[in-house]
């Protein structure tokens, strides 16, 4: 995954390094700036079995700050925010592997370094008995639940770091 570019991001960003589950790394720029969820809409994307983005609806593209071409074919962790604990995504993939649907609150990183919160639900696309990919549908999350998650995820990251 390519590093983020300083030219793309809003001012007042802090540089951080993300380490993905396969130990690959990416330099990201993160700003303390939230973009509100688009009221009444759903943010939808689909991946193949390996988590590579295959489709995204208009809200998905708009909220990410990338163009559609920059997203399709990329691993979905292109949106990973350093404030998200690894355990959340491990739980996502473990849950899907058991054949169940996963729901969780996710803070996503935009191309410009700002962030947005979603309540995501991910299901497997089962066609003719086979898993052909996954669909994630995100809706507007409740402020109260986000407040709880901010604290919970902070603690989880402290544990992961130690």
């Amino acid at each position: 995954m390519q590093d983020m570019h300083q030219d793309d991001v809003v001012s007042s960003c802090i540089e951080q390094v993300l380490v993905y589950h396969d130990d690959s790394r990416r330099k990201v720029y993160v700003a303390d700036q939230e973009v509100p969820f688009p009221e009444g809409k759903l943010i939808v994307s689909r991946t193949n079995e390996a988590g590579i983005i295959t489709h995204g609806n208009q809200s998905f593209v708009e909220m990410s700050g990338f163009t559609e071409d920059e997203l399709i074919g990329q691993p979905h962790h292109i949106l990973r925010h350093p404030d998200m604990p690894k355990a959340a995504f491990k739980d996502l993939w473990d849950t899907l592997a058991r054949g169940e649907k996963w729901s969780g609150y996710v803070k996503n990183l935009r191309k410009d370094g700002a962030y947005y919160w979603v309540l995501a639900t991910v299901v497997a696309n089962i066609r003719g008995g086979e898993v052909t990919g996954y669909t994630s549908v995100r809706r507007k999350p409740s402020r109260e639940r986000i407040a709880e998650c901010i604290e919970l995820y902070r603690q989880m990251r402290l544990e992961e770091a130690s």
Binding site: K101, V123, R127, T135, S136, V137
Partner: peptide, 14 residues
Amino acid sequence: QEDTEFMIDLMDTL
């Protein structure tokens, strides 16, 4: 058929 399957997956997430 895939349009409908996709819609069903989406409804399932809601």
